[in-house]
């Protein structure tokens, strides 16, 4: 039902009078030249060249080295907070984050040294001992790759009550002097379900900042969420932890699109998982175009048993850069209802 009446006959941009004869084929558009100098460096003893301004992770990718990332996405500004992508750079006292460190001529980089492996393993263990990573398959693959054993830090502490982590006060942990150290602190807490479109399960949040970036300047510019609190109590929050329905949220779901752990999840997926019917192996993913406005956003339609179960968009797509609006991401319910 594309209701073309509304502007089906919109006047067209015609830079010639109502041409009965076609306008002749013109020259090709002149695109801005983007010259770029190449930078030579060495990664794991292998020479590689990258364009000026490229980061070390691009250099590793050119050599088909699979550098693990959690907080990095090509369509977001690197925040370099997860530190799993660190590499060893000759001459640097500490390891450097490959996602944001710009390549410089003559750099010598090691991506799989013992130091690198130790830090990556530790990052995985620190996260997995404090966060539920059960819906983060990529994360689990990294754990296998680096031999992570989060249980070294002890059994996870009991989950927080609803709102408890949101009420934490910065700088006030130490009142717990000498409290029981038998368990490892974790971010486990009840799931926040305050609308029909998506849920926020912050017990699965590794605080990668991606959702904040997608809600903010990198995509949606709605700024409904930010990081609040400090230290281990830092968390993603609306102002005063108000429900999404009172916040600035416009339900574009771009935060879900970038979440690496399933902390942000379509309600449809959340409900199916709860019911035990979610089955990714039985799902297909098909790229098509959004049926609503004329922008032409690519939708990846996830289908299970002839029902749409969620919609995403490819990150490398030039129209969307992986981002959608509420209609594209959630406005498909009617297809299932027929």
């Amino acid at each position: 039902m594309s209701e073309t009446t509304r502007n089906g006959a919109t006047p067209l941009v015609q830079l010639a009078p109502d041409a009965m004869t076609p306008i002749p084929r013109g020259p090709l558009p002149i695109l801005p030249s983007r010259p770029s100098k190449m930078i030579d460096l060495t990664v794991d003893g292998r020479a590689v060249s990258v364009p000026e301004g490229a980061t070390l992770i691009e250099a590793t990718r050119r050599l088909s080295i699979d550098t693990p990332t959690l907080c990095f996405l090509e369509n977001l500004t690197p925040v370099n907070v997860c530190r799993i992508c660190v590499v060893e750079l000759e001459g640097s006292r500490a390891l450097v984050p490959s996602c944001s460190r710009k390549a410089e001529a003559g750099m010598k980089v090691l991506t799989d040294s013992e130091r690198v492996r130790l830090s990556r393993r530790m990052v995985l263990e620190l996260l997995a001992s404090s966060v539920d990573v059960s819906t983060a398959p990529q994360f689990q693959e990294y754990m296998r790759r680096y031999g992570a054993h989060p249980e070294r830090f002890g059994a996870a502490a009991a989950p927080a009550n609803e709102g408890e982590r949101d009420a934490a006060v910065p700088g006030r942990h130490h009142t717990g002097h000498g409290h029981s150290a038998a368990t490892a602190a974790s971010v486990a807490q009840p799931v926040k379900v305050d609308n029909d479109l998506y849920v926020r399960d912050y017990g699965k949040c590794i605080l990668c900042y991606k959702c904040v970036e997608a809600c903010g300047e990198d995509a949606q510019n709605t700024f409904a969420i930010a990081v609040a609190g400090r230290g281990f109590d830092a968390r993603i929050s609306t102002e005063y932890n108000v429900p999404l329905t009172e916040s600035a949220c416009v339900y574009c779901g771009n935060c879900i699109g970038v979440c690496p752990t399933g902390a942000l999840m379509f309600k449809s997926e959340f409900d199916m998982r709860a019911a035990g019917t979610w089955n990714e192996t039985a799902q297909t993913q098909t790229n098509t175009i959004c049926p609503y406005c004329g922008v032409g956003c690519t939708l990846t339609v996830h289908v299970q048993a002839d029902k749409i179960v969620k919609v995403t968009s490819p990150m490398e797509q030039p129209v969307t850069n992986g981002h959608l609006c509420i209609k594209g991401r959630f406005g498909w319910e009617w297809v299932n209802q027929r």
Binding site: N80, V81, C82, R83, I84, S119, M122, V123, L126, L127, S129, S130, F153, G154, P170, G171, R172, H173, H174, A181, A184, A185, I206, L207, V227, G229, R230, G231, F232, D233, A234
Partner: peptide, 21 residues
Amino acid sequence: RDESCGQCVPCRVGVVRQQEL
């Protein structure tokens, strides 16, 4: 633990694990 800003994983969780240890 009180003063870590919480931004990067090694420090945010590391200082907690250090205290627990």
